[in-house]
């Protein structure tokens, strides 16, 4: 029995519906993966090249020339742990923001819970993340660096926080993008600024006693915890990670509510 009536905002039914449509969600993710690796001539290796060269450039300029401190860890390894999570977050945020506009042909012709579009685009980023992780292993072998293997256990939690942070932000930006089409031009700039506000190329200690401000950015706690867990140095700062998790949760709630509130006119104005 389907009942169609004027739309209300967020309810539990929405989450149940996502579960009902899980197969379509995976189909969308599968499509994005297939298309991406078909379109780019270099295929899977693209997921390796991109983070690898970013790491090389950062290591040469920030690590080599600018002598950025890296808490006594070889700078390439230091920066790459940050980059891995950062790239996961930033590409997830970008693609989720464009997920509705990019699928407008489907949105105007078929019903499905719109929420699965941003979610499915982010799922694809997990694959990229694991492919790019191979480089980290390579770097550690190259520098004869032994990581704390126990630290790997915290990675799923960190990925989960990054996932929800990107989803929350992505939901807001995707909805705004439907209404205001110039958002997608502003987004790369916004993400670039965010990169410098996140301790990817520098340790958060560089900000001295103001480093707690950086914690408002959920990726700060995530990247810092990843470095502590894998590379040692300072123990994991659970308070910082807690703040990141809480902020991420708030963004996620705002994202869900805003998305559901604006969802009803997507098909009319997209």
């Amino acid at each position: 029995m389907t009942v169609i009536k004027p739309k209300k905002t967020l309810s539990w039914g929405d989450f149940k519906e996502i579960w009902q449509y899980r197969e379509l969600l995976l189909f969308f993710a599968w499509r994005d993966l297939k298309v991406r690796y078909k379109q780019t001539a270099v295929g899977v290796s693209w997921a390796l090249f991109q983070p690898f060269f970013t790491m090389v450039v950062f290591s040469v300029f920030f690590g080599g020339l600018a002598k950025m401190p890296s808490d006594g860890i070889p700078y390439p390894i230091f920066v790459f742990v940050g980059l891995l999570l950062w790239q996961f977050f930033s590409t997830a945020l970008t693609d989720a923001s464009n997920s509705l506009v990019g699928n407008q042909g489907i949105i105007t012709k078929v019903y499905f819970p719109r929420l699965i579009l941003p979610i499915s685009t982010i799922l694809v980023k997990f694959v990229d993340f694991f492919i790019a992780s191979i480089i980290l292993v390579g770097l550690m072998v190259f520098y004869h660096y032994t990581p704390h293997l126990w630290g790997l256990l915290i990675i799923p939690l960190l990925l989960l926080i990054s996932f929800f942070a990107a989803l929350g932000g992505g939901l807001i930006l995707a909805s705004v993008n439907v209404k205001y089409r110039d958002v997608r031009y502003a987004l790369p700039f916004f993400i670039q600024i965010l990169l410098f506000l996140t301790p990817v190329i520098y340790p958060p200690s560089i900000a001295g006693k103001y480093s707690w401000i950086l914690a408002i950015n959920p990726m700060t706690g995530v990247i810092k915890a990843a470095r502590s867990a894998l590379l040692g140095g300072a123990p994991i700062n659970w308070l910082l990670l807690g703040i990141s998790g809480a902020v991420c949760f708030v963004i996620l709630i705002i994202g869900f509510v805003y998305f559901k509130k604006t969802e009803k006119y997507f098909a009319d104005i997209i």
Binding site: M1, P6, K109
Partner: peptide, 22 residues
């Protein structure tokens, strides 16, 4: 009817699975 856009008022009850081919 195919739930692409919600109505402003009123209600529709459909007793079964709906497939739409727009």
């Amino acid at each position: 009817l195919s739930q692409i856009t919600p109505p402003t008022e009123g209600e529709i009850a459909i007793n079964g699975r709906v497939g739409s081919l727009l």
